[in-house]
Design a protein around this nucleic acid. Sequence first.
DNA 1: CCGATACCTCTAGTTTCTAGAGCTATATAT
DNA 2: ATATATAGCTCTAGAAACTAGAGGTATCGG
Lengths: 137, 137
Amino acid sequence: MLTIGDLSKRTGVKVPTIRYYEQMGLISEPDRSEGNQRRYSKADLERLAFIRHGRDLGLTIDAIKELISLSQHPDRPCVGADRIAREHLDDVRIKIAQLKRLEHELERIVSHCDGHSIEDCYVIRALSDHGLCDGQH
Amino acid sequence: MLTIGDLSKRTGVKVPTIRYYEQMGLISEPDRSEGNQRRYSKADLERLAFIRHGRDLGLTIDAIKELISLSQHPDRPCVGADRIAREHLDDVRIKIAQLKRLEHELERIVSHCDGHSIEDCYVIRALSDHGLCDGQH
DNA sequence: CCGATACCTCTAGTTTCTAGAGCTATATAT
DNA sequence: ATATATAGCTCTAGAAACTAGAGGTATCGG
């Protein structure tokens, strides 16, 4: 039996966040000690690790919920789980592309700004005037 | 003189968001019509375009505020503006690196999952078991 | 001058936590 | 057995950057 603090240390999920996940229905209400403190089993540990992993991968809480509910029907085909992962992959790729454009633009801005006065600062000018930008965003 | 709707159309910033920026002190309180509606000047349009542009680049509202205040002292050296852009560039690079690791992992997950049943679905298994991951995250 | 549309203020909700107040349980040291 | 330190409890509010809705008023085209 693990306390909430043990669980937190083992999974890297902060204590208030664990309580929050409980509130959101991601983990079920655990047993309690005589003094009303939460006591977790190994299954809870695994479930929380799953959630943590999903969140690290950027899945939303809703997506994780869906995956949990899918995983509780092991007989069904896993196209649902596959779809969630695939959709998320698409999102990730879009985000990377956006950020790369941004990186490119910030590089240009920074490299043009060599410590003169604000009056002709490239950072300010670039933000004021979209026309100075390289690509679209 | 532009109404808030005109301003919104020209900058692509939604009407409630413009009001929100005003509240946050990013734009100053504009003149009002006789009937108490906001009327904007061309200077306001430029300022809002600046803000929009900064937000598109992922700058926080605080960072933009800082840039605006810097730009109002054109005599000072622009190291401050340069620093903000540089720090942000660092953030962006970190985020890209994270997302790439993530992309990689999702690709692996998706490609291993070919529509069998949940029981041996790679998506679920990968989330449950960090050991199946390729890299660190 | 009527009616449609746009505007006004104010409040509350979104998402994913995080922080704090005020109080109680548990574990350890003496 | 008791004192103390740490960790736990609930509940509320805050952070970021908006977004949505309620209920009411201006403005403008026809």
